[in-house]
Design a protein around this nucleic acid. Sequence first.
DNA 1: CGCACACTAGACAGACCGGTCTGTTATCGT
DNA 2: ACGATAACAGACCGGTCTGTCTAGTGTGCG
Lengths: 199, 199
Amino acid sequence: MPATDTAARPSARDRLLAAADELFYAEGVHTVGIDRVIERAGVAKATLYSTFGSKDGLVRAYLEGRHAERRDRVLAHVERHTDPRERALAPFDALDDRIAQPGFQGCAFVNASAEADEGTAATEVSREVRAWTRALFTELATAAGAAEPAAVGRQLHLLYDGATLSARMDREADAARAARAAAAGILDAAIVAGAVAPG
Amino acid sequence: MPATDTAARPSARDRLLAAADELFYAEGVHTVGIDRVIERAGVAKATLYSTFGSKDGLVRAYLEGRHAERRDRVLAHVERHTDPRERALAPFDALDDRIAQPGFQGCAFVNASAEADEGTAATEVSREVRAWTRALFTELATAAGAAEPAAVGRQLHLLYDGATLSARMDREADAARAARAAAAGILDAAIVAGAVAPG
DNA sequence: CGCACACTAGACAGACCGGTCTGTTATCGT
DNA sequence: ACGATAACAGACCGGTCTGTCTAGTGTGCG
């Protein structure tokens, strides 16, 4: 168990994953070849293939790592609030943080699946991620007492996607805040409607 | 001038462009190689390079063709209406038509520039397209008497992007209609605000 | 006719791709 | 001390990529 060493060099797996994360996100899954990844990781090619099986396996691990990070970051923002309205808008604050980070390149899942074939890691992980995001917004809209939580959750999701895309394509730093403002309007209208027309 | 022939076979240029449009859009600019394009077009490789200079030149021509098509389609929908509110929402109807078309694969510009380097045709044409779209929404919001037309135009643009993305990623056929409903809410709130607080 | 031009077919170059394999070194538990 | 395990470096494979080049074929025009 070499990971037990104090202050030890990260395992080959971790170094591969870190290198893949940086290169794949910055330059694209298709653009970056295996050789660049193993060079940055300081790892032999055989180790990559015995660890991840294929390039697609590495891509899957990279995307699942991104998904876990995003989930944690978004939920952390949500759980800072108790007011359900604030909780429903919190994902936009999480996105705002992300956009402000140097090297922001948009949604890793959208980028990776833009030209991916069916049945590859990119399309499969993306499907999970999108389902999770949609469910989150729907839950938050329900908790906020929106009249039609499924429809409202979906509209929040549209704005969330639009902001991510605009931040990437237009390099506009305040895209998430613009989306948040629009989301607040939609949400408030739906909450009022829900209160006005109770069961 | 061989194009003068009645019912003649399209020129090599047109066949190349048609083949590129189908293949690049369906499978991606990176995925599809030159050989597949020239095979489908029934054209020699030398002809491609004497006509477009490089693959990137062909990609540029493909994307500019997509831009022209989109511009015409959106403007046609806008000009069906005289009511400025309906005009501002018309792009969502145009998008709804597009999504319903078989083989819809999302935004060609987003897909092409997902993993494109700076300075390539994909990033350059995408920049133009996005500026045009933003200007359109801002104009339409202004004409509709929205209180803050720049902010409203931007929010409509966010929803437009989100709907395009969701239709592609989630295969939801009514994404444009959901976005249109949200846009209508935002627009109406802004028009009321504009009327309530006049110059 | 003869010339210019646009096109076709396909070999070729040089780089890069994902993936396999060989051989070596170091570190572990026993 | 010893065998197993994991990692290393890097050659190698078949295939694909963009782009160039040669050579031959029609076709319209003066």
